[in-house]
Amino acid sequence: MIADEPTLARLMAQSQAGDRQAYTVLLTEAQLWLERYFRRRVAPAQMDDLVQEVLMALHHKRATWDSSRAFLPWLAAIARYRWVDHLRRVYRNEEEALGDHDAAEESEEEAVLARMSLERLFVHLPDKQVEAIELVKIEGLSIAEASHRTGQSESAVKVNIHRGLRKLAALIEKAE
């Protein structure tokens, strides 16, 4: 079981004061919480890297948590920010690797779970943007494959991914 909000807030306050023992517990709890938070939002193979990135961000930006406010909404905002950044990087990597279709296939169940977990933010996006991001970012299709599947041109797929990610970035704090 992961610690509750008051416990996490207390640990974070102690961490800001320099208590290393409290910080170790906090980071361990945050790691568990993030793994659960991201479980259906990223491919399992990328989970560890993303969690580590958020833990690093938590460390470097720990002064930005105000003890008069809740801890988990602060952590969730940082996690979403890093997640959107992660989606952008995946896209760039795929752009560079166009033509390489040897990536390991993920199970359909994992893909479905990943798709469902993003719906909460996706409800604010037009269907075509959601479709393009889901196919390319979650299911791992190439731009050409996504174009064939959706009937959108390759340019339209790229534009819809680009615009969708911009909107996701704008929704990081808003979408509850």
Binding site: T64, R69, A70, W74, A77, I172, E173, K174, A175
Partner: peptide, 10 residues
């Protein structure tokens, strides 16, 4: 804004 939070309105 410098202190992020899901639920913030600006």
């Amino acid at each position: 804004i410098a202190g992020p939070r899901v639920g913030n309105r600006h």
